[in-house]
Design a protein around this nucleic acid. Sequence first.
DNA 1: CGTTAGGTTGAGCAATATCAAATTCGGTGG
DNA 2: CCACCGAATTTGATATTGCTCAACCTAACG
Lengths: 264, 264
Amino acid sequence: MSVPHIAQSPSALLLARFGGLVPLGERERQIIRKLGERAPQAWQNNTVLLAHEGEGSMTRFIVSGWAARVRALRDGRRQIIDVHVPGDWIGHAGHPLLRTTTRTVALSPLRTIQTLDVQREWSDRSREPVLSTALGLIAAEDQQFAQNQVVRLGRQTAYERIAHWLAELHYRLSARGEAAAGSFVFPLTQEAIADVVGLSVVHVNRTLQEMRRQGRIELRSGRLNILALRELIAAGEFIEPTLKSGLVPDDVAVRLSQALALAQ
Amino acid sequence: MSVPHIAQSPSALLLARFGGLVPLGERERQIIRKLGERAPQAWQNNTVLLAHEGEGSMTRFIVSGWAARVRALRDGRRQIIDVHVPGDWIGHAGHPLLRTTTRTVALSPLRTIQTLDVQREWSDRSREPVLSTALGLIAAEDQQFAQNQVVRLGRQTAYERIAHWLAELHYRLSARGEAAAGSFVFPLTQEAIADVVGLSVVHVNRTLQEMRRQGRIELRSGRLNILALRELIAAGEFIEPTLKSGLVPDDVAVRLSQALALAQ
DNA sequence: CGTTAGGTTGAGCAATATCAAATTCGGTGG
DNA sequence: CCACCGAATTTGATATTGCTCAACCTAACG
């Protein structure tokens, strides 16, 4: 009997996503709500979502379920390059002329909606001062997460890697209203975890058990419960992305600082 | 007595960089040549080039020498996230509001020039059909190299990692006229290599020796000689970025835009 | 209930790290 | 040209982390 998860509606998720980054006015809220009104699409676990990237860049938005960008080696080794969770877009970057070396695959049953190409439509600062800022922040955060992945794999121990990654997931999900009290849907098998953190399944299993023994996590039936976030963050040396205030267009800056003041 | 390296002039390097990706017309050549005429700037080994990223995005161009984006852990472990070589720009991405977690550091004496923000100025397809394509390809390639780094660190053995990385370096450098007959300037210490491929210095040393013993590389006094590129590529399972359509160099820009229209 | 995917456990082993001590190399001052 | 210095490379010995293999367990599901 799995814990029921009341998924946010597409619009609510979109609002949480943007609202978590920039203070939204009523105008932006309208635009975003509308964006979420497209019909959702369902995917089975393991479906290939994107074989060639770049075809639909930044246009498919995850409403529920997880996916991953994967590269496979000839002998069967697989590396998950990054994980996509609800509130992410699938299908970044790439170029139509360049053959892709990765696939994007569903790691669980998945629901997506087709949005317009927000990156293209909203990145103009003069037309969308607020939303373009949000998109810039999203891109910058994503880049940091990509760097995190490299550091984990390159220089951290098994325990550190997993701790760091779980902390990162918690950060990402709670910023968009997908986690409550350190608890969130976690649909991956240990094999998939292994492919994320570059370890063997067996070792992942043992490391998770150690975390459980220490009372830092609970993980069962598709749900992760982080009991000791502080400790995980410290163990993995996770750096939470933090906003500097300052250098923004005035209108945005004012609202932003108001929002930050409220958030304190 | 070091092997003399006749560095390309900034303009020549820029031309090689763009010309290696798209067929340039005389108009584009003019524009690019002009871009290379700014005064070069010199940096000592180990200088911090960027503490806060995003300040000068895509505006500093490496003429000679190598640099790297680095993340440090508290206990002194360091991971090099990516390496910048001549023909690369420094200072991508990031966002002024987001505190950076990496530094960009010179890994050798370095010469750069300040260019205009090509990403901003040339990314409009209607104004710069050829150059914008080149920029798109650069971004897409860079993304693939970033993915390569993750796969190396996550799923490859020491030997594979180094082989793969050397093959990638060779690809990047020769595409811009910085390598001849598999030989190129290679100014890194083994410690820096270790920080790239996520290994200990000692193990890097032993792995390099194995490659030498097999007659696949020569590495001494700041120069790398790849004697068996095929074998390195195969061992590391390196995938050379390949253009899909047969975009044969052809001086007419029109052909290119036709090809692009088809590719859409 | 039987099947199956996923999770857990144990034992032995391989890859890579660590530590410490040479050795070589590229300058640099005399 | 030589002697010397510090940095980088190399070598040997030992420790450790994480992998592999193989078996076993459990829960969900038809």
